[in-house]
Simulated assay, not measured.
Amino acid sequence: MAGIEAGGPQDQGLRQYLRLIARTLGVDLESCWYECDPDATAYIALDQRVPRHPDHDLALLWDEHTGWCAGIEVGRGADLLPLTYLGPPVLPPPEAVTVFVSDLVAGRPPDRPEPPAMPAEAHLGDLLVEYADHAPAAVL
């Protein structure tokens, strides 16, 4: 689904989806970032840490091919070392992302260290447009 038009309904939907997840996680929008070109991706810096890596910041990374990934930021360049993936669907409800993070922060061992075999989401654009209709998204 490469090439989402900036400011278009899919772009607005991704922004709103990210806003809803940030809200359920209690994260300020300043900790979020997304882009749509060439592929749709999103990032959320989290305040929590994983018990197995208490000295590293935790973050979420989403893309249209693998869905959500939780990882730790390592090194000065803040490279993200993937810990686990949420798995299908590629655009899970915000509540599912919150449970995913809560389980990881509570010490549940990561069970998907490799990107899942994500089915191609032919209707991802339509799903994003549905999120655009939820409410006006604040600027990210």
Rank of each mutant, 00 (worst) to 15 (best):
D39G: 08
L83G: 06
R23I: 11
L127P: 00
T66M: 10
Y17Q: 09
I21T: 13
R15F: 05
D39P: 03
R112I: 00
S102A: 15
G8V: 00
V50Y: 10
D57L: 11
P113E: 10
P109M: 12
A22E: 03
P82M: 05
D79G: 12
V99L: 11
D37L: 10
P113K: 05
P92K: 01
W68I: 00
H123V: 10
H134I: 14
V129K: 08
H53Y: 15
T66R: 12
D103G: 09
P54G: 05
Q12H: 10
A59I: 01
T24K: 12
W33E: 14
H65T: 14
G13N: 07
D47E: 14
G71D: 01
A40G: 12
I72V: 15
G8Y: 01
A106E: 11
G107F: 02
P94Q: 05
P93D: 14
Y85F: 14
P89D: 04
R15P: 02
G13V: 01
D103V: 01
A120R: 14
Y43T: 06
A70G: 08
H56S: 14
A59R: 07
E30Y: 08
L60I: 03
P136F: 08
D47M: 03
E64T: 07
V105M: 06
R19Y: 12
H123S: 14
L83S: 08
I4N: 08
Y85T: 07
V99F: 05
P54N: 03
G87Y: 02
L29S: 04
H53S: 10
G8N: 06
G71I: 00
G26W: 01
D11L: 04
A78E: 15
I21F: 02
P119N: 03
L127R: 13
Q48C: 13
I72P: 04
Y131T: 05
C36I: 15
G107L: 05
A106L: 06
L18D: 04
L124E: 09
A122N: 11
A138T: 08
R76C: 10
L46G: 02
A2T: 15
I72Y: 00
P115A: 10
A137T: 06
T41R: 13
D57H: 12
W68Q: 00
